[in-house]
């Protein structure tokens, strides 16, 4: 059905369920990042980014986390097309992570334990408002794109935020709570 016809029907008061595959959709085609072949990151870097984003937005009682939402796919794709400066910022960030893990724990990030990875992120995030080192400067960069990717994923939109918009409505309900209508 053409969307225009759909709206004619909606205008005529008929209730039409929106097809999930149609243009009105919050669905995502995020691949399972476990089997994803990255283009900007190396395979090892991608696993690193996947682990870091999951620490920033973890699976918990609120919703699944960054890994399940496919955030790594989004970030890798954005960076694949990003300009050299943005790409370099991520290369530098990854380098500072490896350097920190080596000096702190004497091993590579991928050999570090979940506890050690948590400690690393705690160090990264300690000066969020006024980052001073390469490692600290990378945290807001990583977090900003992680949040963008998560908020735009199906899991982020629906299970985390509880957003059920991006649909056609006959009327806009707005606030009808009696307690909000009074002085």
């Amino acid at each position: 059905m053409e969307r225009r016809e759909l709206f004619k029907l909606l205008g005529a008061g008929l209730v039409v369920a929106c097809d999930g595959a149609a243009q009105y959709s919050n669905e995502t085609l995020a691949p399972d990042v476990s089997n994803y072949k990255p283009r900007f990151f190396s395979d090892q870097e991608f696993v690193t980014i996947d682990a870091l984003t999951e620490i920033i937005i973890p699976a918990d009682g609120q919703s699944p986390g960054a890994h399940a939402a496919g955030v790594g796919f989004y970030i890798d794709t954005v960076l694949h097309y990003a300009d050299a400066q943005e790409q370099q910022a991520w290369r530098n960030g990854l380098a500072s992570i490896e350097a920190t893990v080596q000096s702190k724990f004497g091993k590579a990030f991928l050999s570090s334990s979940p506890t050690e990875q948590d400690q690393l992120v705690a160090v990264m995030a300690r000066n969020e408002r006024a980052p001073a080192t390469d490692l600290e400067r990378f945290f807001p960069i990583l977090k900003t794109l992680t949040l963008e990717a998560f908020a735009l994923s199906k899991i982020g939109m629906t299970q985390y935020l509880g957003y059920y918009g991006n649909i056609a409505q006959q009327e806009f309900p707005g606030c009808t709570h009696p307690e909000h209508q009074t002085i």
């Binding site: 620490i55 920033i56 937005i57 973890p58 918990d60 009682g61 609120q62 919703s63 992120v121 995030a125 969020e128 408002r129 977090k143 900003t144 949040l147 908020a151 735009l152 982020g156 939109m157 985390y160 935020l161 509880g162 957003y163 918009g165």
Partner: peptide
């Protein structure tokens, strides 16, 4: 609460506390 233009993105920290 439109995810495409979330009004507030700069809550500090990370993890479950940040999410909440």
């Amino acid at each position: 609460l439109n995810p495409k233009n979330l009004g507030i993105r700069d809550a500090p920290g990370y993890g479950s506390t940040f999410k909440r």
